[in-house]
Design a protein around this nucleic acid. Sequence first.
DNA 1: ATGAGTGGCCAC
DNA 2: AAACGTGGCCACTCAT
Length: 607
Amino acid sequence: MSLDGVQLKLVDSIDQAYDLLRWLDERRPLDALGLDLETTGLSRQTDRIKLAQIGDGMTGWAIPWHHWNGVLRDVVKRWKGRWITHNGPGFDLVFLRRAGVDIPQHLVDDTMVRSAVNEPHMSKGLKQQAGRHVDAAAGGLGEVLKGTAWTWENVPETFGPYWQYGALDPILTYRLEEYHRPITERESQRAYDLELATQFVTERMERYGAHVDREAARVAYEKFIRFCLEVEKWCQLNYSVKPGSNQAVVQILQNAGHTFSKATATGAVALDADVLEGISHPLAQQVLARRQLQKLASTYLRFYIDNADTDDLLHPSINTLAARTSRMSVSEPNMQNLPRQVTNDAADLVRNMITCRYVTRDLAEDTWRPTVHGSLLMCDFAQIEMRLLAHFSGDQAMIDAFSYSDLDFFIALARQIYQDETITKKDPRRQITKISGYAKIYGAGLRKFAQSAGIPEAQAREFLRRFDALYPGVQRFTNDTLNEAFERQKTDGLAYARSPFTNRRFVADSRKEFALINYLIQGSAAEILKMKILELDAAGLGPWMFLPVHDEVLLDVPGEHVLDAAETLQHVMNDDQLISVPLRAEVSYGRRWGSKLDWVQEKVLAA
DNA sequence: ATGAGTGGCCAC
DNA sequence: AAACGTGGCCACTCAT
């Protein structure tokens, strides 16, 4: 395929508008239209459409939005066929909807999603993809404004290179669809359907947003920063060093007689929390304390204050296609890694500042009634990855350990492994068992397992021997996955595993094929969460979901819907049919996320 | 001034 | 036989 002979056209007269509509009428009803937009920028809240482009494999039309948007509206009214976008659900369709142009979800296909599913190890970008599958020259496009005084915001729509660059995009999109569609249909239709549908739901989550207690964030920020400044002054005064300059701090501590043994990945002297905690020197303690508070203040509090909108809502981006396991990631801010340690008040605070939008700030905790004033609902799967390990292994003993309704899974497992029915929650053997489970899931070897469990390698070896004897299915699952991957390496040139749920390909880096075990488990968990989010959406909870966290979904629900929503969550997320052990989910609620210390912390802050 | 790389660290 | 996985984002350093 090449781009020879393509036609690029600009709609800037009535005649050309009619040309476009005539061209449209000649499209076959079963054909598709490529669709793309050029905008003033990337913000879906504040930026505007400059150019709308449609096309097929040979002809691309650029429609200047300000003067000729009526033409695009007319096209949307007339066209009954499919639409092909590249990141449409997350971008172009959002801009169009805001402009009052609604393209029905069921008519949309998307080449970014197709690429992510068909070739998860490759770049998903339109130009990069087109360079691979359409025309090598297409990969080098995208610098039309270089050497001009224009920006994406103020370039005239009629500037030749600009609109031509734009008009080419629907052509590329259309061609990519032609390339990908047969592959998707043959290889991974279910994964594609799942991913595409998920994008429409997560885009709504982004718009709905997360409510933040901005006032509390301001107070905490001031306090944290004041502390950091004092530490910096102290370090300067006493040691003439910046507490953030690790190597300089190391120098000083070395001069004071401390020796360092831990190295970083590249061989430098490590100065992480672990190392600092082991040094009895006032500088070490100050460096550590400042590092923690500085991180919290700048990553979260500063972000909350600067980026919440006028309704105190954050709108983080949810990327459904970032991780090779199909996990979703979240950015600006990354709300999937808000500190959770209850032992650290300062850290816990950051999570507690995510609050229910329907509760006014002055409403005292003891007068708050979730079913009256509204509530956050948090619904998370219990040990979903361990359940998937049991499912994949097929070991009856491990499967059984999930079927005692009144017994913790890891206690049940520990009792089997240690042959001791007296093991309870606090028994250290439960913790070792738990760590071993995650070691299996992550693909850890003996050494790393012993390390994480804090036991001698001999003891770890004995433990794993018993584990493997009791649950031979885990090793069988591991071996089968790897053997299959190596077979595929020979035939397809690529080591990969396939999702049992959607037939998705999980691709491993070379020499890290063992990671496929983890990809299957983590990826299946991710796919299950996506499936469940779609079910929740279909069950009517779409308007209130705002955040996925790998095995959990968060909702912000008005009071009159709280009970219904909680019941729906229970009903949808608990599932006895999907895999060979029951899937269990717990619903919790609160005025704040985290919520354990709540108002107490606000008082601490005020002090 | 900007960007890439590193080290560090939070989550699941 | 042996192999801990996936992300995002900060401060800092050194390069262009």
